[in-house]
Simulated assay, not measured.
Amino acid sequence: MTFPEMTVGDLVDLLSGCDRDVPVRLAMNPFFPMAHRLAQITQSVDQTGRPVVYLAEGRDENTQLGHLPPEVAVALAWQEPVQAPPRRPRRSAGGK
């Protein structure tokens, strides 16, 4: 089974509706979602000889920005929406 790949044209079309001054982040690893700074773009060929464009994270220690915001993981369908559990009444110091 093959999956359709996003093309450069698809990416340009999707980005054309975004504010040009907003930083670009890379969301990685659906099982432990993290945000990364995008630093480089390079073009090459894959193992079959097809041209491919690679988006790469930076090399410095500040490239990984931490956990992906939960709303982003939900929007990407990497996580289910989660609601906080209902609050229980607090017990008094006397145990009653």
Rank of each mutant, 00 (worst) to 15 (best):
A77V: 03
F3Y: 07
C18I: 05
K96H: 10
Q43E: 15
G17F: 09
Q47K: 11
L68D: 00
F31N: 02
G95W: 02
E57N: 14
L38H: 04
Q64S: 12
R50T: 12
F31A: 03
A93M: 05
D60W: 06
Q79S: 11
R90A: 15
N62V: 02
P69N: 01
A27V: 03
N29F: 11
H67I: 11
P23I: 05
M1W: 11
P30I: 00
S92N: 10
P70Q: 11
R37Y: 05
C18V: 08
A93L: 04
W78L: 01
L26K: 09
S92E: 08
M34G: 01
T2R: 09
F31P: 01
W78P: 01
M1F: 11
L15V: 03
L68T: 03
R90I: 13
R88E: 15
I41S: 05
L11V: 13
V72E: 04
G95S: 04
V12F: 01
R88D: 14
V52P: 01
P30Y: 04
G95C: 02
Q40L: 14
V82W: 14
L14M: 05
E5M: 09
F31C: 00
F32W: 15
Q64M: 15
A84H: 15
C18A: 06
H36R: 04
A35R: 05
L26H: 09
V53I: 12
R59V: 08
A73Q: 01
Y54P: 00
E71K: 06
P51C: 13
